[in-house]
Amino acid sequence: MKRLRSKFNRQTVTTILYPVLFGAVIAILWQTQLLHKIIGADTFTLPLPKRIFGIIADNGSSILVNVKATVTVALGGLVLGSFFGYLLAIVATVFPKWGAGGLTIASAFNAIPIIAIAPILNNLTKDFSKDPNTRSMLAKMLVVMITCTVSMSINAYRGFTELKPFSLDLMNSYAAGKTTIFFKLRIPNSIPHVFTALRISVPACVISALVSEYFAEYVIGVGRQIRENIVLAQYATAWAYIIVACAIGITLYVILLIAEGVLLKGRR
């Protein structure tokens, strides 16, 4: 027990304390303008943290509207991508010949840059609805969905197929059918792999949502506000939205880790 507690304490220090200390050092250098001298920047293009957080505090209501739009796109695309990715993994497991081709095609889609997919999907969804906000949200969700489908399909497929030999032998010794093996063994074995996929997909869904908003028809979202303020040379406001975007990604990732720790307690 002492060794486990000591190991846990060391892991806590390395995974939490060190990044926090590093961030604090950067913030101090930034606020005291030492960082500006090091990288050769000025306070116009790299505003001080005090000013950035002041803008966030003064524009809380408008920022929340954009945060809501971005989180809706990110989570909507994450759910759709995870669902279709898991479904593709099931097809690949049940029908190996067809599934191998599906996984290959999904991996090929993942190689296409987001900045190439987003404008195409914006054009393809123009006739979906007369409301520009509705069709814009759909286009952005599709971009996020494509990004999240691949990681889920590949990791879930590993969970379905990479079984412990003694587990499969035990099921066969009980004369278990393919359906019983699938629901009693393959699906439970895939759950840890699902969370591994979500560790990749959650940051990716936020990044995809932000980038897709750059090309969206409807002017809303954290990513779009970053772009608009940079174009207008409002760098302090742009940095405020960048900080908000970082906060969204970190918050969603922490929620995922908490859920993983609760649901997979003792399984990792």
Score class of each variant (00 low, 15 high):
164 K>V: 08
243 I>D: 02
9 N>R: 09
27 A>H: 03
126 K>R: 15
148 C>G: 12
147 T>L: 15
120 I>Y: 10
159 G>P: 07
63 I>G: 10
210 L>C: 10
22 F>E: 07
29 L>D: 02
175 A>N: 13
258 I>Y: 09
1 M>F: 05
84 F>V: 12
67 V>E: 06
20 V>D: 01
236 A>W: 09
101 G>S: 04
132 P>N: 11
77 G>K: 09
181 I>C: 04
245 A>E: 08
181 I>F: 00
197 A>E: 05
265 K>P: 00
238 A>D: 10
129 S>A: 15
222 V>N: 01
191 I>Q: 13
155 N>L: 11
29 L>F: 15
243 I>R: 07
178 K>T: 01
246 C>H: 00
257 L>D: 05
164 K>T: 00
85 G>S: 09
110 N>S: 12
179 T>G: 05
56 I>M: 14
12 T>M: 14
156 A>C: 10
21 L>D: 06
59 N>M: 05
218 Y>I: 01
51 R>I: 03
155 N>T: 01
124 L>C: 09
255 I>H: 08
44 F>Q: 10
264 L>V: 06
162 E>N: 14
140 K>H: 02
175 A>M: 05
50 K>F: 13
107 S>C: 12
84 F>H: 07
261 G>P: 02
241 Y>H: 14
19 P>K: 10
88 L>F: 09
256 L>W: 00
130 K>I: 11
53 F>N: 01
251 T>F: 13
37 K>F: 03
261 G>D: 12
7 K>E: 07
241 Y>Q: 11
195 F>W: 07
234 Q>S: 04
107 S>N: 14
128 F>V: 15
53 F>T: 01
31 Q>G: 06
18 Y>P: 00
127 D>A: 15
137 M>C: 07
246 C>R: 02
79 V>D: 04
172 N>W: 01
134 T>V: 15
188 P>G: 10
204 A>N: 15
30 W>I: 00
74 A>K: 04
202 V>H: 12
248 I>K: 08
12 T>Q: 03
60 G>R: 01
77 G>L: 04
231 V>F: 04
188 P>H: 03
47 P>M: 05
112 I>D: 13
77 G>E: 05
201 S>Y: 01
259 A>M: 11
66 N>W: 09
206 V>S: 01
243 I>K: 02
173 S>G: 15
